[in-house]
Protein backbone atom coordinates (compact mmCIF):
# COMPACT_ATOMS: atom_id res chain seq x y z
CA UNK A 1 0.00 0.00 0.00
CA UNK A 2 1.31 3.43 -0.93
CA UNK A 3 0.35 6.37 1.24
CA UNK A 4 0.95 10.00 0.31
CA UNK A 5 0.91 12.76 2.90
CA UNK A 6 0.45 16.42 2.09
CA UNK A 7 1.92 18.54 4.85
CA UNK A 8 2.47 22.25 5.18
CA UNK A 9 4.73 24.53 7.11
CA UNK A 10 2.83 27.40 8.72
CA UNK A 11 3.79 30.42 10.79
CA UNK A 12 3.08 29.92 14.46
CA UNK A 13 -0.19 31.87 14.57
CA UNK A 14 -0.29 31.92 18.36
CA UNK A 15 2.57 34.37 18.39
CA UNK A 16 1.92 37.00 15.74
CA UNK A 17 3.52 40.42 15.96
CA UNK A 18 2.32 43.42 14.04
CA UNK A 19 4.22 46.15 12.22
CA UNK A 20 3.19 49.79 12.55
CA UNK A 21 1.25 49.46 9.31
CA UNK A 22 -0.84 46.63 10.69
CA UNK A 23 0.79 44.01 8.53
CA UNK A 24 2.09 40.79 9.98
CA UNK A 25 5.72 41.03 11.00
CA UNK A 26 7.24 37.97 9.38
CA UNK A 27 10.75 38.47 10.75
CA UNK A 28 11.45 36.01 13.51
CA UNK A 29 8.09 34.36 12.98
CA UNK A 30 8.55 30.78 14.03
CA UNK A 31 7.53 28.15 11.43
CA UNK A 32 5.94 24.93 12.58
CA UNK A 33 4.29 21.95 10.94
CA UNK A 34 0.60 22.71 10.53
CA UNK A 35 -0.95 21.26 13.72
CA UNK A 36 -3.58 19.30 11.73
CA UNK A 37 -0.84 17.72 9.61
CA UNK A 38 0.68 16.21 12.74
CA UNK A 39 -2.38 13.97 12.66
CA UNK A 40 -1.91 13.12 8.98
CA UNK A 41 1.53 11.84 9.89
CA UNK A 42 0.09 10.06 12.90
CA UNK A 43 -2.67 8.38 10.92
CA UNK A 44 -0.21 7.26 8.25
CA UNK A 45 2.17 5.74 10.82
CA UNK A 46 -0.76 4.06 12.51
CA UNK A 47 -1.98 2.61 9.19
CA UNK A 48 1.47 1.27 8.44
CA UNK A 49 1.52 -0.55 11.76
CA UNK A 50 -1.90 -1.96 10.99
CA UNK A 51 -1.17 -3.14 7.47
CA UNK A 52 2.62 -3.63 7.50
CA UNK A 53 3.63 -3.22 3.88
CA UNK A 54 2.92 0.46 3.54
CA UNK A 55 5.29 2.98 2.05
CA UNK A 56 4.72 6.57 3.07
CA UNK A 57 5.78 9.59 1.01
CA UNK A 58 5.32 13.10 2.36
CA UNK A 59 4.85 16.03 -0.04
CA UNK A 60 5.12 19.66 0.80
CA UNK A 61 5.17 22.78 -1.32
CA UNK A 62 6.97 25.81 -0.03
CA UNK A 63 10.28 27.59 0.47
CA UNK A 64 13.52 25.72 1.18
CA UNK A 65 13.04 26.15 4.93
CA UNK A 66 10.25 23.55 4.71
CA UNK A 67 13.00 20.96 4.25
CA UNK A 68 13.47 20.98 8.03
CA UNK A 69 9.87 20.03 8.63
CA UNK A 70 10.15 17.17 6.12
CA UNK A 71 13.35 16.02 7.84
CA UNK A 72 11.42 15.79 11.08
CA UNK A 73 8.75 13.73 9.30
CA UNK A 74 11.49 11.36 8.11
CA UNK A 75 12.71 11.06 11.70
CA UNK A 76 9.21 10.00 12.72
CA UNK A 77 9.38 7.13 10.27
CA UNK A 78 8.10 8.53 6.99
CA UNK A 79 9.92 6.75 4.14
CA UNK A 80 10.29 9.45 1.49
CA UNK A 81 9.95 13.21 1.46
CA UNK A 82 9.45 15.46 -1.56
CA UNK A 83 9.62 19.24 -1.39
CA UNK A 84 8.07 21.08 -4.32
CA UNK A 85 10.13 24.23 -4.31
CA UNK A 86 10.40 26.83 -7.04
CA UNK A 87 10.03 30.60 -7.28
CA UNK A 88 7.41 29.91 -9.93
CA UNK A 89 5.18 28.34 -7.24
CA UNK A 90 5.17 31.48 -5.10
CA UNK A 91 1.85 33.24 -4.57
CA UNK A 92 -0.23 30.16 -5.40
CA UNK A 93 -3.82 30.17 -4.14
CA UNK A 94 -5.53 26.93 -3.19
CA UNK A 95 -6.35 26.12 -6.83
CA UNK A 96 -2.78 26.53 -8.06
CA UNK A 97 -1.35 24.80 -4.98
CA UNK A 98 -3.62 21.80 -5.49
CA UNK A 99 -2.76 21.67 -9.19
CA UNK A 100 0.97 21.73 -8.42
CA UNK A 101 0.80 19.11 -5.66
CA UNK A 102 -1.48 16.88 -7.75
CA UNK A 103 0.99 16.99 -10.62
CA UNK A 104 3.81 16.16 -8.18
CA UNK A 105 1.93 13.17 -6.83
CA UNK A 106 1.02 11.81 -10.27
CA UNK A 107 4.61 12.28 -11.42
CA UNK A 108 6.44 10.72 -8.46
CA UNK A 109 3.92 8.36 -6.79
CA UNK A 110 1.50 7.56 -9.65
CA UNK A 111 0.46 4.27 -8.06
CA UNK A 112 -0.64 5.77 -4.71
CA UNK A 113 -3.52 4.18 -2.82
CA UNK A 114 -4.34 6.79 -0.22
CA UNK A 115 -3.62 10.50 0.19
CA UNK A 116 -3.91 12.01 3.67
CA UNK A 117 -4.20 15.77 4.23
CA UNK A 118 -4.90 17.79 7.36
CA UNK A 119 -8.44 19.21 7.36
CA UNK A 120 -7.26 22.79 7.84
CA UNK A 121 -4.02 24.71 7.84
CA UNK A 122 -3.89 27.17 10.70
CA UNK A 123 -2.63 30.07 8.57
CA UNK A 124 -5.24 30.14 5.82
CA UNK A 125 -7.92 27.89 7.32
CA UNK A 126 -9.39 27.34 3.85
CA UNK A 127 -9.79 23.53 3.89
CA UNK A 128 -9.79 23.74 0.08
CA UNK A 129 -6.51 22.27 -1.07
CA UNK A 130 -7.27 18.64 -0.17
CA UNK A 131 -10.59 18.38 -2.05
CA UNK A 132 -9.08 20.25 -5.01
CA UNK A 133 -6.20 17.75 -5.19
CA UNK A 134 -8.77 14.93 -5.15
CA UNK A 135 -10.59 16.62 -8.02
CA UNK A 136 -7.46 17.01 -10.14
CA UNK A 137 -6.51 13.38 -9.55
CA UNK A 138 -10.13 12.32 -10.18
CA UNK A 139 -10.43 10.29 -6.99
CA UNK A 140 -13.09 10.31 -4.26
CA UNK A 141 -12.52 12.25 -1.04
CA UNK A 142 -13.73 12.05 2.53
CA UNK A 143 -13.32 15.20 4.64
CA UNK A 144 -13.64 15.91 8.38
CA UNK A 145 -12.30 12.44 9.22
CA UNK A 146 -12.01 11.90 12.95
CA UNK A 147 -10.80 8.32 12.90
CA UNK A 148 -9.65 5.59 10.53
CA UNK A 149 -11.56 2.43 11.45
CA UNK A 150 -10.30 -0.08 8.94
CA UNK A 151 -8.18 -0.24 5.83
CA UNK A 152 -7.47 -2.85 3.19
CA UNK A 153 -5.78 -2.61 -0.20
CA UNK A 154 -9.09 -1.90 -1.84
CA UNK A 155 -10.98 0.33 0.57
CA UNK A 156 -10.85 2.35 3.73
CA UNK A 157 -13.49 2.83 6.44
CA UNK A 158 -13.49 6.10 8.36
CA UNK A 159 -15.59 8.04 10.82
CA UNK A 160 -16.31 11.61 9.76
CA UNK A 161 -17.83 14.48 11.66
CA UNK A 162 -20.71 16.41 10.21
CA UNK A 163 -22.67 19.26 11.73
CA UNK A 164 -25.58 16.98 12.62
CA UNK A 165 -23.72 13.85 13.62
CA UNK A 166 -21.13 11.26 12.82
CA UNK A 167 -21.01 9.27 9.62
CA UNK A 168 -19.17 5.99 9.09
CA UNK A 169 -18.11 5.85 5.47
CA UNK A 170 -16.47 3.26 3.27
CA UNK A 171 -14.60 4.56 0.26
CA UNK A 172 -12.94 2.71 -2.60
CA UNK A 173 -9.21 3.33 -3.04
CA UNK A 174 -7.43 5.25 -4.41
CA UNK A 175 -8.94 8.07 -2.37
CA UNK A 176 -8.05 11.20 -0.43
CA UNK A 177 -8.99 11.89 3.19
CA UNK A 178 -8.75 15.10 5.20
CA UNK A 179 -8.22 14.44 8.89
CA UNK A 180 -9.18 16.32 12.03
CA UNK A 181 -7.23 16.09 15.24
CA UNK A 182 -7.96 13.11 17.43
CA UNK A 183 -7.13 12.00 20.92
CA UNK A 184 -4.06 10.01 20.01
CA UNK A 185 -0.86 11.29 21.55
CA UNK A 186 1.42 12.23 18.62
CA UNK A 187 4.47 10.04 18.07
CA UNK A 188 7.80 11.50 19.09
CA UNK A 189 10.99 11.00 17.13
CA UNK A 190 13.27 8.35 18.57
CA UNK A 191 17.06 8.31 18.47
CA UNK A 192 16.90 5.45 15.96
CA UNK A 193 14.41 7.37 13.89
CA UNK A 194 16.64 10.42 13.81
CA UNK A 195 19.66 8.25 12.95
CA UNK A 196 17.96 6.51 10.06
CA UNK A 197 16.48 9.80 8.86
CA UNK A 198 19.97 11.25 8.64
CA UNK A 199 20.68 8.68 5.92
CA UNK A 200 17.62 9.71 3.93
CA UNK A 201 17.31 12.95 2.08
CA UNK A 202 14.52 15.29 1.16
CA UNK A 203 14.06 15.27 -2.61
CA UNK A 204 13.60 18.76 -4.00
CA UNK A 205 11.64 19.21 -7.21
CA UNK A 206 11.14 22.28 -9.38
CA UNK A 207 8.38 23.30 -11.79
CA UNK A 208 10.49 21.91 -14.59
CA UNK A 209 10.86 18.55 -12.82
CA UNK A 210 7.07 18.39 -12.53
CA UNK A 211 6.59 19.42 -16.11
CA UNK A 212 4.05 21.97 -14.97
CA UNK A 213 3.75 25.09 -17.09
CA UNK A 214 4.37 28.34 -15.24
CA UNK A 215 0.92 29.51 -16.40
CA UNK A 216 -0.68 26.87 -14.19
CA UNK A 217 1.12 27.58 -10.94
CA UNK A 218 2.07 30.51 -8.71
CA UNK A 219 0.39 33.89 -9.09
CA UNK A 220 -0.17 33.31 -12.82
CA UNK A 221 -2.00 30.05 -12.24
CA UNK A 222 -4.14 31.39 -9.39
CA UNK A 223 -7.70 32.45 -10.17
CA UNK A 224 -7.95 34.44 -6.92
CA UNK A 225 -5.85 37.24 -5.47
CA UNK A 226 -5.83 39.22 -2.25
CA UNK A 227 -6.93 42.77 -2.99
CA UNK A 228 -6.36 43.99 0.53
CA UNK A 229 -5.40 42.67 3.94
CA UNK A 230 -6.08 44.43 7.20
CA UNK A 231 -5.92 43.77 10.89
CA UNK A 232 -9.08 42.35 12.41
CA UNK A 233 -10.92 44.88 14.53
CA UNK A 234 -11.36 43.91 18.09
CA UNK A 235 -14.33 45.17 20.01
CA UNK A 236 -13.01 46.43 23.32
CA UNK A 237 -15.34 46.95 26.20
CA UNK A 238 -15.02 48.19 29.72
CA UNK A 239 -15.39 45.07 31.74
CA UNK A 240 -17.14 45.52 35.05
CA UNK A 241 -15.47 43.12 37.47
CA UNK A 242 -17.25 41.69 40.46
CA UNK A 243 -16.32 39.21 43.15
CA UNK A 244 -19.82 38.87 44.42
CA UNK A 245 -21.97 35.93 43.29
CA UNK A 246 -25.19 37.90 43.81
CA UNK A 247 -23.95 40.62 41.47
CA UNK A 248 -22.94 37.98 38.97
CA UNK A 249 -26.35 36.33 39.18
CA UNK A 250 -27.93 39.73 38.64
CA UNK A 251 -25.86 40.28 35.52
CA UNK A 252 -26.91 36.86 34.23
CA UNK A 253 -30.57 37.41 34.96
CA UNK A 254 -30.91 40.95 33.76
CA UNK A 255 -31.34 40.47 30.06
CA UNK A 256 -33.05 43.82 29.66
CA UNK A 257 -33.15 45.54 26.30
CA UNK A 258 -30.61 48.23 26.04
CA UNK A 259 -28.34 48.40 29.04
CA UNK A 260 -25.30 47.21 27.13
CA UNK A 261 -25.99 48.42 23.66
Amino acid sequence: MKIVLCIKQVPDTTDIKWTENNTICRDGLESVINPYDVYSVENALHLRNACKAAEITAFSMGPLQAENMLRKALALGIDNAVLLCDKKFAGSDTYATAKTIASGISKFVPDFDLIICGQFATDGDTAQTGPSIANFLDIPQVTFVREIIDCSNREIVVKRELSDGEETVKVTLPALICVLKNEKEPTRATINGIKSASKKSVVIKSAEDLGISSDLTGIKGSPTFVSKAFRAKKREKNCEFTDNIDKLAEAVEFNGDSENE
Binding site: P11, T13, T14, I16, I24, T122, D123, D125, T224, F225, V226, S227, K228, A229, F230, R231, A232
Partner: peptide, 9 residues
Protein backbone atom coordinates in the same frame (compact mmCIF):
# COMPACT_ATOMS: atom_id res chain seq x y z
CA UNK B 1 -4.13 33.65 10.67
CA UNK B 2 -6.45 32.43 13.39
CA UNK B 3 -8.74 35.42 12.94
CA UNK B 4 -6.02 38.01 13.36
CA UNK B 5 -5.81 39.17 9.76
CA UNK B 6 -8.72 39.95 7.44
CA UNK B 7 -8.22 39.48 3.70
CA UNK B 8 -10.45 40.70 0.90
CA UNK B 9 -10.18 38.37 -2.06
Amino acid sequence: FGGQLMATI
